[in-house]
Design a protein around this nucleic acid. Sequence first.
DNA 1: GTGAAAGCGCTAACAG
DNA 2: CTGTTAGCGCTTTCAC
Lengths: 342, 342
Amino acid sequence: MPGINEVARLAGVSTATVSRALSGNGHVAQETKERVLAAALELEYVVSSNASSLATGRMKNVGVVIPFLNRWYYGAVIEGAESALLSHGYDLTLYNLAGGGGERTSVFEHFLLRKRVDAVIAIALELTEGEVGRLHDLAKPMVVVGGSIDGVRTLSIDDIGVARLATDHLISLGHRAIAHIGGNRASEMDFHVPSKRRVGYEQALTAAGIPIDTALFQAADFTLQGGYAAAKQLLGDPRSRPTAVFVASDEMAIGTILAARDLGLTVPDDISVIGVDDHELSEFFGLSTIAQFPALQGRMAVDIVMDQLHPGHRDLALTNTPLPYELIVRSSTARPTSRKST
Amino acid sequence: MPGINEVARLAGVSTATVSRALSGNGHVAQETKERVLAAALELEYVVSSNASSLATGRMKNVGVVIPFLNRWYYGAVIEGAESALLSHGYDLTLYNLAGGGGERTSVFEHFLLRKRVDAVIAIALELTEGEVGRLHDLAKPMVVVGGSIDGVRTLSIDDIGVARLATDHLISLGHRAIAHIGGNRASEMDFHVPSKRRVGYEQALTAAGIPIDTALFQAADFTLQGGYAAAKQLLGDPRSRPTAVFVASDEMAIGTILAARDLGLTVPDDISVIGVDDHELSEFFGLSTIAQFPALQGRMAVDIVMDQLHPGHRDLALTNTPLPYELIVRSSTARPTSRKST
DNA sequence: GTGAAAGCGCTAACAG
DNA sequence: CTGTTAGCGCTTTCAC
């Protein structure tokens, strides 16, 4: 484990010069720099990030806080963020709030305060007031992806718009009896995206002059199983069965497709279904959906954070760009068959 | 951002005493300790982990290296490891090798060398010789979960035993024409678990006096889609159709169930299927499987690492405990129906 | 362009 | 049991 001293000695310069040569801060004669680089290489020198951090106050590390890990959306955002961070030379330390135990409080009361991260990215996280306060106390760059925290830079798609687009797609195909599977109480706790999607759905119906029928709403927990159960409920009664369903997430939408099959219904002949996300399995199931691009969202979050950390790059163009989303029509949506279209 | 100095001043002691009182190292009079604690609390003091690390050489941080994130198994292992680490006061920094770009090399050549982690946990990762060398150079505690690296402490289930158990289950039900969906070349790259599972499958057949028929093997990529495609291939021809399939992972097994349905086959009447993992969706699909417990594996990896970092705890009982696995019989396996049992 | 030297904030001997 | 004092390994003024 050679230190900066050995490198300096080997290169025949002072440690200050080594530091400058290696970090790129300050000017060093080309020739000297090469000598230093060679020496560093030969000794396999790597700076001690601790010593460096202690001296500069920069950690080269950002914390990512998530409510749980094993859901496609979170994984995808993290992958995007991770690779973007790597490319900037940053580490990503993960704080998973799942586990129900003291995890949540210890993360906020203890871990995030340790001065280990330069910034924090929170993913689809609904926080208590106290937690928000803690985060503000950090006085560090912070961005929220897919959720919202008062007074914090937020990166999220227009959930109302997304829902309206999905619903409009169904309406434009000729559907009128359009159901909605959305979030339940529990899922609201961590991100109140569900209610926005419901609002969008209702707006679209209203705009089309279709009355809102609360019997056509079912709550679920954003899992495939939850979607399945909700769909069974919704589609089970032949007398009240809708011709289409807008489901608030692809995982639930896949559950819906499965439920339809188990009920002997054909998608899309008997029932059209559209989701949100463009989950990795959606193509496989032929699911029409509104794609959002979580990996991109992760990358954008990193861009914003980097921009705050190193003003100067100023790609601030993206600062208020709305996040993209896109209608993807596959085989799960079609015109209602004549026998059912009213 | 008060430092240890202000705390010392407020408590009327030296910084050394503050350090001792707060870290628990060395003895401090009860009364003094309380004064220090009170002062720290009042000032909302938190140690600078950098300064502390620089002084002690301990980072309170472990690196977790994974080939990709969005697969159930990885997520589950990480969750287990993460919560165990938190409870020990450690951070978890994530190194995701996915992305195909320079990620992989930069992680090994750069990030892991930064002296930021006290230990590394690699999950189901097959490494090149050079990478293994790099890791050894670190001279840090290291454990591999569900994979194998020469000369490194490994934590993995008995894949051959698992496969044999699954296959035996099928045999004991009366099946003789048992197919296997296993890994393909690409999946071998990151963990050669697949070949072990195939070996176990073959051992079980041989032990039961059933000849091995290579036509009953299909390779896939460990995704649901891959399993679906492989199963279509395997089950499509009514003349050569097996009565049961042992699938090397639950995700592929679910694909198999879906394929069977699409072929008009009933599970388990026409075809029994059993997987490996006990994926979160397996219960939903009624999939019989051999459960492994990834979260537990993550936790155990942390225990081992902690034990190496802080000798003294010595829970070394676990050091060579084989990992548990368990046959879970659901509705996807049953006796072959008489018309098909040869 | 380069070197000397003063820290960054804490911990760990070593005394007392 | 507690205080003094050297560092931990780097970065960064400030001179030259």
